[in-house]
């Protein structure tokens, strides 16, 4: 096994996440896409750890941190979506254009 194979997989996952981020209208689906991107980042971290084998498994430690922060992000993100939905009867991000000129 070489590093590239996982790195390419991660890049593909990340690109798919970007695609979802850009085309999805539903805010929940946008969040799902973001999760894909974060998973891709985690793969990279673990791959680098497998390459260098630090004594304290720093790559894995950081992937756990990313996972934790991602979980917090999902909680807050969903709460925000919930409130937006309650106020506007819609969770579509392209209808949230209050900040336009």
């Amino acid at each position: 096994m070489i590093a590239s194979q996982f790195l390419v997989l991660a890049a593909a996952l990340f690109a798919l996440g970007v695609y979802g981020l850009l085309v999805r209208r539903n805010a929940v689906l946008v969040l799902l896409s973001v999760e894909l991107m974060l998973a891709a980042v985690n793969i990279n971290l673990v791959v680098f750890e497998a390459m260098w084998r630090t004594s304290e498994a720093i790559g894995q430690v950081f992937s756990i941190f990313v996972l934790t922060v991602a979980a917090a992000e999902v909680g807050i993100g969903l709460a925000i979506i919930l409130m937006i939905f309650r106020n506007r009867q819609s969770a579509n991000v392209d209808e949230l254009d209050l900040m336009r000129w």
């Binding site: 981020l21 850009l22 392209d94 254009d97 209050l98 900040m99 336009r100 000129w101």
Partner: peptide, 17 residues
């Protein structure tokens, strides 16, 4: 320039990426 400020999050995201 203000036409860039569409208020659409995903356009911003595209620019960002």
């Amino acid at each position: 320039l203000r036409k860039l400020q569409t208020g659409r999050v995903q356009q911003y995201a595209a620019s960002f990426v």
